[in-house]
Nucleic acid binder design. Structure first.
Lengths: 245, 245
DNA sequence: AATATAAAAATAATCGATTATTTGTCAAGC
DNA sequence: GCTTGACAAATAATCGATTATTTTTATATT
């Protein structure tokens, strides 16, 4: 949309265009952009779990004013990534063994329920989306040596899980699951998780996907439940190793 | 993750300040007070579902500045009571048949699960709290002629349901349930629901409570599920009557 | 008349400065 | 020595004004 000059409006109004790579996809306001950046910073561990968020420092770090900063932080509260207390400000939500276990348990309940509903309600479009997400995920290599590949894999992994349940037709339920996935990813990325030797995660995903598209509710749901449970156990071991309570 | 505001079901002996006389509670921030007032205004239907919230008018109505107003509204987003769009502002979350059905379904899933966990984990203290909440609820008359008694009953009813699941030891799950209860109450209060003739709600509550304290998981959970389901059906009929899609 | 365009009004977002609250420090009194 | 309270510094909350965006209205063009 930039190059060729359209209807001759000689006006020199063209000024510093924002980096063309940033699609104008609804993240217009500073507050929204900030929410995204902060979310990523928290999930990736760049902002330490449990740490206080000093508004003044954050304001300088992100080069923004107070209003959008508060706006962004307020939004992360609904994501469960930030906690707030009147007159005492914000802090990054802490991580703990108990929290990890709750997240895992609730994922087993909610994500499995959402899959069940998706299988019941989903259409062909949904099936296709699953196969696509599965393919992209399984064809992507995870190379521990290159962090950027890990991030990419994480994004595809998340996408796969969300696609699985995207057919359930229940916005609130999807919101909950999305939130739980956010929380879960913090633990995962905190340890740059390498799957334990006795797991073939790729196959696990394939089994879940296959079960879903052939509408075998019990099979797919049980496979998903086990998948979530194993991941939880895996993460818990890492956490215990690090001595987190 | 919970905002530190009102709706306290945590404080046992708390007497509620009767009318919403403004200001001088002094202790909380304006943003928090606003969040409470707005939450009540939305749940009670004072602010119409789906309607736009004009910041300038709201600012004048509530006699506050923009910052705390936005702060308060942002918090209601996590409660599912307000929706937001960049550069287009806030609006009261709409109600619909589909939403009511989802809320009911998810309550059946989550609240029942939370009760199951509470029965497994709850201590004597928890049992006592249930009996107290039940007693207060059953001893309170609901007089359709006097709205303030309805509000009081609603508060006790909400308190009872939250107490039932308060022993589960899962903060996130409680947060979800609390949110669902908020959404559910909007429908309930929209119709000043009078229970249909074939229900004895008082007895339903008693059965659930009894089952819980004697730790009969299956009995208590099934009774709760039916209770939620019946309420959902009841509300759906009212909604259909009003022609809501 | 219908569509497109430009100016104006309404509304939302942001900023910089000010006010309120909490936290930290230190001396006085017991 | 320990608590208490006054003060100061740090931090959070709020305000009023300014800037940016969207919506509405008016005008022109086909």
């Amino acid at each position: 949309m930039d190059s060729s000059d359209d209807s001759g409006h000689g006006a020199p109004t063209e000024e510093d265009a924002p980096p063309a790579t940033f699609a104008d996809d609804g993240k217009n306001t500073i507050g929204s952009q900030l929410a995204s950046r902060l979310r990523e910073a928290i999930i990736s561990g760049e902002l330490e779990a449990g740490s206080k968020i000093n508004l003044d420092k954050a304001r300088k770090t992100f080069n923004v004013s107070l209003s959008p900063l508060r706006e962004g932080l307020a939004r992360l509260i609904s994501d469960g990534l930030v906690e707030f207390q009147d007159n005492r400000g914000y802090r990054v939500a802490p991580i703990s063994l108990a929290n990890l276990e709750e997240v895992t348990t609730l994922r087993e309940e909610l994500e499995v329920f959402a899959l069940r509903e998706s299988i019941r309600m989903g259409d062909i479009e949904w099936e296709g989306n699953i196969m696509r997400a599965l393919h992209r995920l399984n064809r992507t290599e995870r190379d521990a040596a290159r962090p950027e590949t890990l991030e990419h894999w994480e994004a595809l992994h998340r996408e796969f899980h969300l696609t699985l349940i995207s057919g359930c037709g229940k916005p609130l339920l999807l919101h909950f699951c999305n939130l739980l996935l956010n929380l879960n990813d913090r633990y995962r990325r905190a340890f740059l998780i390498r799957t334990s030797g006795d797991r073939n995660v790729g196959q696990e995903h394939s089994e879940i996907a296959q079960g879903a598209v052939v509408r075998d509710v019990d099979y797919a749901c049980e496979k998903l439940r086990q998948h979530i449970h194993r991941t939880g156990t895996n993460l818990r071991n890492h956490l215990a190793t690090k001595g987190v309570v």
